[in-house]
Design a protein around this nucleic acid. Structure first.
Lengths: 139, 139
DNA sequence: CTTGGTAAAGATAATAATTCTCCTTTAGGA
DNA sequence: TCCTAAAGGAGAATTATTATCTTTACCAAG
């Protein structure tokens, strides 16, 4: 996502466009690989050592609330953030704690069709995400 | 799981059978619905007010390490524990934070077959778990 | 361009959750 | 029964996050 697009989005949501918000958003985008707050703060501190930690938490929260970022449940208990908003799954490496995005429209169709036929009793499905754990091979 | 079975498992893993471990394990089993540490401590305190909190954390950790319990991450980020060890999925209610187990061998077969045909490049799948988010209807 | 109201940022204290340290107790094999 | 390593207890320390209060600066209106 471009900075201009972010500016638009913030305005749409009635959020002020501040340099901190732009920097924090770019951090999440640039870091890729689903950074934790810790990583984000680290990254930001290099070029912007005066952004306060509280601000980072507040900004990330408001981004999630407003749908500009998503939270990712990792295997161990720290929260991580994702700038990829469209529906996708995650590959988790248990040993390295790496998380990669995984998209597969065919698989989604398969699963959706399955649940269209066989509903879950007394539960309305909003979203289905696969947690695929395993090991990355090479590299 | 019975207490006797727990005793066996602890011995197999080379862990000492202590009253604290038994109490903590039973708490997770009895509480069902994937208790958080908080709930477990609460529950234990009633009958065993002198078990220390540090012990609860240590015991839960060692149970997870030794495969006697599994961790589940809830919608609002807190870690919760599950005594159901066989493969199953979870229904997450975003509003009430309730987590229910969901088993469906047919679905598992469908997904496994899918990935048997279409491998993921440079990733060996160990386990696939569905995070099904939505709303419970009635009750 | 200036200004003023208000949302957001900064600093820091407070809280909550978890881990650590150190010392004591205990399980369980010899 | 004794010995020893493992485990438990108490509370300090650490870490992550949230809350509070003050200051700053975005941005809309004039």
């Amino acid at each position: 996502m471009t900075t201009d697009r972010l500016r638009e989005l913030l305005k749409e949501k009635g959020l002020k466009v501040t340099p901190q918000r732009i920097v924090i958003f770019e951090a999440v985008v640039n870091l890729k690989n689903h950074p934790a707050v810790e990583n984000i703060i680290e990254y930001i501190k290099i070029k912007h050592p005066n952004i306060s930690i509280g601000t980072v938490y507040k900004v990330l929260d408001s981004f999630v609330e407003n749908g500009l970022l998503k939270k990712v449940k990792s295997e161990n208990d720290i929260m991580r953030y994702d700038a990829v908003l469209h529906h996708h799954h995650h590959l988790y490496c248990a040993t390295t704690d790496r998380i990669e995005d995984f998209e597969d429209p065919n698989l989604d169709k398969l699963i959706n069709d399955y649940f269209r036929k066989k509903k879950i009793k007394s539960f309305n499905i909003k979203n289905i995400t696969l947690q695929i754990t395993g090991e990355f091979n090479n590299k």
